[in-house]
Design a protein around this nucleic acid. Structure first.
Length: 554
RNA sequence: AGCGAGGUAGGGUAGUCUGGAGUGCCCGUCGGGCUCAUAACCCGAAGAUCGGUGGUUCAAAUCCACCCCUCGCUACCA
């Protein structure tokens, strides 16, 4: 059987991911992975913390801590929050490890030997107080055009013009606030994407445009657009301290630029997971690599990472599927990772349990276009869909069963509904195989609507009342209940990737304590008699609304 | 400015590749039914110049051209 590697874009470990970060990559990857496990696929789910880069180094400088300590502490925190969200990674690693370093060097040396590494010379600002090269956006001063005083080295926020750092009047360093800045010539290494352009183009055309690989439209077209414009060499080093040193006398203080070791991190993290098995996945011709990410990350996965893999020519597999999500936005609720404010997954979990977030976020998942998050929308999904439509159906059927045990015990038999259930099963399966994960969730909602309609039209409560005197009513009641219980059971299984806790609690009525398997949909059901029935979902409470309201901008 | 993605009833979405009566779904509204259930559920109805303008066609939400609006990338952010 083909192996599968599922990846989610690596969260940058200097702040807690917010709801948009979570729904745009880790959550759908986790849902998809759970679906694959339910189908007994040989799949691994790899993710981890992206630890290097200017932002973390400067944050550490400001906080007067070691960047490794800073990023490790966020790493531990983020990892445990994802786990609290019900995510079950095969391995959640990080990029600053000996394993990743080994892979980075190996790939770099191969790229260099194959002629795909060049040098780029540029002028860069240097703070003589901090003894640190400054990224453009860490220089602030007066805009040469509008003379606003808050212009940064890359852009003036007052007039919106793009700037070069040496255009700033009276520049100062935003880290220490001093003006002792000089511009120095620096040399960086670059990946010669221009020399790999034709092979990347071929990769996108053969892999990306093949319909069964299910690349999202934005990923294919943005990549082809970049190629149409023409790929340029791209820096892979930075003149700073935090990162993997290039370790070559010719290049002094350079470290690898964060994006280079971050994309390679997918491999390094797998190696960290299992030093003896990682190659089975990364170097086996029958492995599919399925990558989930936000739309801002497309180029790194469709151009940069493939270029690294092609150029190094070390036998690593190429990505097969690229699924890029749009953004979850909000005009009414604050969430921003870079400014570290608003509703992140930590305070979200403090308000509502993980299933509620997993379900509602996937329900509003920005699969094809940006979607707008609001407390009203969240409440609607929880109250009307999860609670009323699904939770209430489960409760209605289980209570009917429990209240009529004497009529039903040992008589619940084969449901006549199997062809109907099969239809939903196939629809669900087809959506997942096309990576239309939101639509798979909608299939469950449709099945619940079907169950509610069946319940209303067949009126089992009426049959139960008449069954005392009428054998045919009694038989009809048993048959209807067999069908309804089969619907509830099926919902329990299909819900597993999205809401594992709710799934487990539904399946516990059917005597199932382990992770469900997709093939169980075909099985006859088995009920635990007399088990106390409790609602699986609840409506959002006023207290919870009040807590959520604290993140409102209104 | 260049390169992408999106704009479909009051709100949200699917349909667009491969043209066939505005077809579908969720919420909201209105009317009816039901009383097993968490005041939940079911049935029915109203509600859309498919962002705009032109074009191709017997036929356009769908194909082409131009324009408008939103978001992303084009950054020494990742």
């Amino acid at each position: 059987m083909a192996k599968k590697i599922i990846t989610s874009a690596l969260p940058y470990s200097y702040a807690i991911p917010h709801l948009g970060n979570f729904v745009g990559s880790v959550l759908p990857a986790d849902v998809y992975f759970k679906y694959l496990k339910m189908k007994d696929e040989d799949a691994i789910f790899i993710c981890g913390s992206d630890q290097h880069g200017t932002a973390i180094e400067l944050q550490a400088l400001k906080d007067k801590v070691d960047p490794e300590v800073l990023s490790n502490s966020f790493h531990e925190k983020i990892k445990s929050l994802f786990e609290s969200m019900g995510c079950t990674f095969t391995y959640y690693g990080k990029t600053h490890t000996a394993e990743n370093k080994t892979v980075v060097y190996e790939i770099f040396k191969a790229l260099e030997a194959n002629g795909f590494i060049g040098e780029i010379e540029s002028i860069q600002a240097y703070c003589n107080i901090d003894k640190h090269f400054l990224a453009d956006r860490f220089i602030e001063g007066e805009c040469p055009f509008c003379h606003g005083l808050k212009a940064r080295g890359d852009q003036c926020d007052t007039c919106g013009r793009l700037l070069e750092p040496d255009q700033i009047i009276n520049p100062h360093c935003t880290i220490c606030g001093n003006s002792d800045i000089t511009f120095k010539k620096t040399k960086n290494l670059a990946l010669l994407l221009d020399k790999l352009q034709n092979r990347i183009k071929e990769f996108i055309e053969t892999t990306g445009e093949k319909s069964e690989n299910n690349w999202s439209k934005n990923a294919i077209n943005e990549s082809l657009g970049l190629i149409k414009v023409g790929l340029k060499p791209r820096d892979i080093t930075r003149n700073m301290k935090w990162g993997f040193p290039v370790n070559d006398e010719r290049f002094g203080d350079l470290v690898f630029y964060v994006w280079f070791d971050a994309v390679i991190g997918y491999i390094g993290i797998t190696k960290e997971w299992d030093p003896s098995r990682w190659e089975e996945y990364w170097k086996s011709s029958d492995t599919e690599l399925i990558q989930f990410m936000g739309k801002d990350n497309i180029e790194f996965h469709t151009v940069v990472f493939p270029a690294i893999l092609i150029g190094s020519n070390l036998g690593y597999i190429m990505p097969s599927s690229i699924k890029a999500y749009e953004y979850l936005t909000s005009k009414t609720v604050k969430f921003s990772k870079s400014s570290k404010i608003g509703l992140n997954i930590e305070n979200a979990l403090a308000i509502l349990p993980s299933d509620y977030w997993r379900f509602s976020l996937m329900y509003m998942c920005p699969e094809n276009s940006d979607s707008e998050f609001s407390i009203d929308l969240l409440s609607e999904i929880i109250n009307k869909i999860m609670n009323d439509k699904i939770g209430n159906l489960v409760n209605r059927v289980l209570v009917l069963y429990k209240n009529n045990l004497s009529l039903l015990r040992s008589r619940i038999g084969n449901s006549m509904l199997n062809p109907e259930i099969k239809k939903y099963k196939e629809q669900y399966d087809s959506h997942f195989s096309k990576l239309n994960i939101r639509n798979a969730l909608l299939t469950i909602v449709e099945l619940a609507t079907f169950g509610n309609a069946l319940l209303n039209t067949s009126e089992p409560w009426a049959l139960a009342k008449m069954s005392g005197s009428d054998q045919s009513k009694k038989d009809a009641f048993v048959n209807v209940m067999s069908d309804l219980l089969k619907v509830v059971y099926s919902i329990g299984i299909l819900l597993w990737p999205f809401a594992p806790r709710a799934s487990s609690s539904i399946l516990s009525y059917f005597g199932i304590e382990n992770e469900p398997n997709f093939s169980m949909l075909e099985d006859d059901i088995n009920l635990i008699a007399g088990k106390e029935v409790a609602p699986i979902f609840q409506k959002i409470s006023d207290d919870q609304l009040a807590e959520l309201g604290k993140f409102s901008t209104l």
